[in-house]
């Protein structure tokens, strides 16, 4: 399960809207609690894919490094990444899988290291969202629980 506040999910959705029609990307900082990925900060990163490419993202390595250091300073760690799918559904593509950090490092068979949050942006407006892990070499959807302190409870989807 991915647990994220309504505020942080809103920041991811806003990033997807701002960067539309290109894909946005960023990092999820937080902690692990059992099998859960608990997000406590989101960190927008630059997409280094060519500007005319709207169906790819390459997360800026410098931003990734800076986020790692920021997480460390906060006593957190990088627990995942996010990106948007402009005018497409929420899913974890074969491209996403083959370019996941677990695959790039040749370790897709180990226990899931990260959660990957995907937000759909339709005609410039944020739409649905979903989260995935790389498990035993394949992607798998996980539940997302959105914490909304103003409601005093959580909602799952």
């Amino acid at each position: 399960m991915l647990i994220i506040s309504k505020t942080d999910l809103g920041a991811v959705r806003d990033h997807g809207r701002r960067d539309y029609p290109r894909e946005c990307c960023g990092l999820l900082l937080g902690r692990r609690s059992g099998d859960a990925f608990v997000v406590e900060r989101v960190y927008p990163a630059r997409n280094r894919s060519p500007v005319d490419v709207v169906d790819r993202y390459e997360l800026d390595a410098g931003d990734r490094h800076y986020a790692e250091e920021a997480a460390r300073a906060l006593g957190l760690s990088v627990v995942g990444f996010y990106h948007s799918h402009p005018d497409h559904d929420v899913y974890f593509s074969e491209t996403d899988l083959r370019n996941s950090e677990e695959y790039l490092l040749g370790e897709p068979w180990l226990p899931p290291a990260y959660a990957y949050l995907v937000v759909s942006v339709r005609e410039g407006k944020p739409d649905g969202h979903g989260a995935f892990i790389v498990n035993e070499g394949r992607s798998a959807a996980i539940d997302v629980k959105v914490d909304d302190p103003s409601e005093g409870s959580s909602s799952g989807d």
Binding site: E23, D55, Y57, R64, E68, F81, T95, D96, L105, Y116
Partner: peptide
Amino acid sequence: VIPAIAGGR
């Protein structure tokens, strides 16, 4: 060690 992650639909 900073992997350069990427993806796309």
